[in-house]
Design a protein around this nucleic acid. Structure first.
Length: 211
DNA sequence: CTCCCGATAT
DNA sequence: ATATCAGGAG
């Protein structure tokens, strides 16, 4: 089977498995999604969802976050790991949004990645889910692993993987394909023990039975 | 390439 | 004890 056919088939089958894609992160506006995604680096979304309600109760608005005491933010986000970087980045991002973007989360890749701690992955998530804009495909640990196992890329660098994936899908599917690969990766094809015996992509998987 | 870093599963 | 979890920066 050709790579393009396999890519299309993966989307078709997973779109049936996940009829209504929604991020597992809890959020109610673009800023909240930005913060939640920033906190999700090397951390489970479940853990992030325990932290964000406390964060947004303490600092409800972007202006509040911009004026927050970094040490207090560190305490709140500590359990998500990398807490010093994350606390500093969130405050810096909030400050820049207030000063440069009139207090509104910017709606383009070019602008979003000027915020500290925000690169293509986080920007793509915010653009796709909060604004319905598909400027890129978010490549996180799950997309990286699934794209490799399903033979959609041979690269290891997320930027290169994104370039391999983009031509395989029409732009309007870019947000969904991320969601599908993340959820399917979590539920069926995790890093350690892939469940090849119950996998509905088994027949088109180049690495079935292989680690 | 290294460093940031806590929580959880194996 | 070690690998992994919705990464990003120097």
């Amino acid at each position: 089977m050709k790579k393009t056919e396999r890519a299309t088939e993966i989307h078709a089958r997973l779109s049936r498995r996940y009829p209504e894609p929604e991020p597992a992160l809890h959020w109610s506006d673009p800023w909240q999604l930005l913060v939640a995604t920033a906190l999700s680096a090397q951390c489970t979304d479940e853990r992030v969802n325990k932290v964000t309600p406390i964060f947004f109760e303490k600092w409800p608005t972007i202006a509040d976050a911009a004026g927050a005491d970094v040490m207090e933010v560190e305490e709140v986000v500590r359990s998500t790991g990398f807490f010093r970087n994350k606390a500093r980045n969130i405050k810096a991002a909030a400050t820049r949004i207030m000063e440069v973007y009139s207090g509104e989360v910017p709606r383009s890749m070019a602008e979003l990645i000027t915020l500290g701690g925000v690169a293509r992955k986080t920007a793509s998530i915010v653009l796709a889910n909060a604004f319905g804009i598909n400027e890129g495909i978010a490549v996180d640990t799950h997309v990286k692993r699934l794209a490799f196992r399903m033979g959609l890329t041979a690269k290891t660098d997320p930027v290169q993987i994104e370039k391999d994936l983009m031509p395989l899908y029409p732009r309007e599917q870019w947000g969904d394909i991320n969601h599908y690969l993340v959820f399917f990766g979590r539920e069926v094809c995790p890093a350690r023990k892939p469940k090849c015996d119950i996998c509905e992509l088994n027949d088109i998987c180049p690495k079935k039975g292989v680690k």
